[in-house]
Computed example of a mutant assay.
Amino acid sequence: MERIELQYPAKERLADKALAGVVGSGDMEALFEPTSDDVLSVIIKTSVDGHKQQWMHLFERLSMQRALPSGRLEINDFGATPGVVRLRIEQVFEEANHA
């Protein structure tokens, strides 16, 4: 298990907490909780060691395509594919925006 912590400037506020995915499914879950500061703190717990650079690149690409929300994003990954990772992150932000 590897724990990765990342921080990114945030420019958006979302309404509420949200959850997307289920870690027990062999996939991943993303939990989001809004905060009042201007930072998105990302905590990743993954069963796949040695992929910090890939996670950093994912969030850098995401931040170029959309405004990141302020809050705490906790990701519990059990070896999800890159497509599923992106999907779960988008889902949790969408759910938090419409809560």
Rank of each mutant, 00 (worst) to 15 (best):
E2V: 00
R3V: 12
I4D: 09
I4M: 06
L6F: 06
L6V: 03
Q7D: 10
Y8I: 02
A10W: 06
A10R: 04
K11W: 13
K11L: 10
K11T: 12
K11Y: 15
L14R: 13
L14T: 05
L14Q: 10
A15M: 12
D16P: 00
D16M: 02
K17N: 14
A18Y: 01
A18M: 07
A18K: 01
A20Q: 03
A20R: 02
V22M: 13
V23A: 14
V23E: 14
V23L: 06
G24R: 10
D27G: 00
E29A: 05
A30P: 05
L31G: 04
E33S: 11
P34Q: 08
P34Y: 01
T35G: 04
T35D: 09
T35Q: 02
T35H: 05
S36M: 08
S36Q: 13
D37M: 00
D37R: 00
D37E: 13
D38Y: 01
V39G: 00
V39S: 02
L40E: 07
V42D: 05
I44S: 06
I44C: 01
K45P: 01
K45Y: 12
T46M: 05
T46K: 07
S47I: 07
V48Y: 04
G50T: 08
G50A: 04
K52H: 00
Q53Y: 07
Q53C: 00
Q54E: 15
Q54N: 14
W55N: 05
W55S: 08
M56A: 10
M56S: 11
H57V: 06
H57Q: 15
L58F: 15
F59Q: 02
F59L: 08
E60F: 09
E60M: 06
R61T: 10
R61P: 02
R61D: 15
S63I: 03
S63V: 08
M64S: 14
Q65I: 10
Q65T: 12
P69G: 06
G71P: 07
R72Y: 13
R72D: 11
L73I: 06
E74F: 09
I75F: 03
I75C: 03
I75N: 09
N76G: 04
G79V: 05
A80H: 11
A80C: 10
T81D: 15
P82R: 13
G83L: 14
V85L: 14
V85Q: 12
R86G: 11
L87S: 13
R88K: 15
R88Q: 12
R88N: 07
V92P: 01
F93H: 03
F93L: 09
F93K: 01
F93P: 02
E94H: 10
E95V: 05
E95H: 10
A96S: 10
A96D: 08
N97C: 06
H98K: 15
A99R: 15
